[in-house]
Computed example of a mutant assay.
Amino acid sequence: MIQGVENPIVTTYVYETFDKLKRECEELNIPLIFKIVKPKLEDRFFVKVIGRGYPTPTNIFRWCTDKLRINPVKQLIDKDEKAVILLGVRSSESEQRDRTISKHRTDNEYYLKQSGSSKNIIFSPIINHALEDVWLTLRYNKLPKSIDFNQIRTIYQDAESECPVYRESKGSSCGNSRFGCWTCTVVRKDKSMGNMIENGYSELKELYAFRNWIAEFRDNTKYRCSYRRNGVKGLGPITLEGRKIILEKLLITEQLSGLNLISKDEINRIYELWEVDKTNLNYQENALQHRI
């Protein structure tokens, strides 16, 4: 299975849970259709970074949210004007989350405006729930049976390094961890992955090392163009040489971890984009190159 750039432990859990939910819905005659959306080939993380030379995301240039998360869902819901997005967002998760919720509020406290869309809305049924409410629901509700409380608790506990109680008050609480992409360089340090490795998820070691390596490599001016694609002088795309180094490092990481990290389609598209840049007048690595 192509894991993409989500934490592979979480991805595996989600796929397994979806399969169980499908069977449970069939048994209960609940007419749900399951579709897993993925970014377009052109928008996938490694195609952008290794193929096009995008620097890995930062707080200033956080291109990944739209390309990897918002756009794939938008492509699906845009086909239906009545589509409603159900999102398990909660108030008080973080200051940033509260600002986002406040920005998109409507007259109904459970509905939020969808960013970039005038016709679709977001339904947030647990927006006023505390963390404790979520965990108690998972633990004691009889349905759905497909959600394995013990398994998901273990994953969150191992990511936290400690999980003493379900209270959302003083100290660390079970399930307060934030799982993101294993390649994420927006944060300084991926604490959840580091804790998981310490708690026995050895298959993540190589991914963690790659993530830390590319965070430094991204800022190495030796492998960054001195001109942007719009012709403005400044720190530009990763050079072709730099992109080749990243791909080689990724393939070694894939081999050592035993995880499928990049697809053949992505690799083929990366090679095609390299050829394009070799003759692209909008791409220049330094001031000595001719530009029209």
Rank of each mutant, 00 (worst) to 15 (best):
V5M: 03
V5P: 07
Y13S: 01
D19W: 09
K20L: 06
L21W: 03
K22Y: 14
R23I: 05
C25L: 00
N29C: 09
P31E: 05
I33H: 06
F34N: 03
F34K: 01
K35I: 15
K40F: 06
E42V: 11
D43N: 09
F46M: 06
F46W: 15
V47M: 11
K48S: 08
V49Y: 04
I50Q: 03
Y54L: 03
P55V: 04
T58K: 08
N59L: 13
R62S: 15
W63P: 04
C64L: 07
T65A: 11
K67I: 00
K67F: 01
R69L: 09
R69C: 03
R69F: 13
K74Q: 05
K74M: 15
Q75P: 00
Q75D: 15
I77A: 08
D80L: 04
K82L: 10
K82M: 07
V84N: 00
I85D: 04
I85H: 01
L86T: 14
L87T: 06
L87C: 11
E93W: 11
Q96F: 11
D98T: 09
T100F: 13
T100Y: 11
T106H: 02
G116M: 10
S118T: 13
N120Y: 07
F123W: 15
H129F: 15
E132T: 15
L136A: 00
T137L: 06
L138I: 00
N141Y: 12
N141G: 00
K142D: 09
L143T: 14
P144V: 12
F149E: 02
F149Y: 15
Q151V: 01
T154G: 05
E160F: 05
E162C: 10
P164H: 11
R167A: 15
E168V: 00
E168R: 14
S173E: 01
C174T: 12
G180M: 06
V187T: 04
V187R: 01
K189P: 00
D190L: 07
S192Y: 14
N199S: 07
N199R: 13
S202K: 08
S202Q: 07
L204W: 05
E206H: 09
L207W: 06
F217M: 10
R218V: 02
R218K: 15
K222R: 10
C225V: 08
S226I: 00
Y227V: 04
V232N: 09
L235A: 07
G236D: 04
P237I: 00
T239F: 05
G242K: 07
K244A: 14
K244L: 01
I246K: 02
E248R: 13
L250Q: 12
I252A: 06
T253F: 07
Q255E: 14
L256I: 05
L259D: 09
L261T: 08
S263Q: 01
S263D: 02
K264C: 03
N268M: 06
I270F: 09
V276F: 11
V276W: 11
T279S: 13
L281Q: 13
N282L: 11
Y283T: 01
E285S: 09
E285K: 12
A287K: 13
L288E: 15
Q289I: 11
H290L: 10
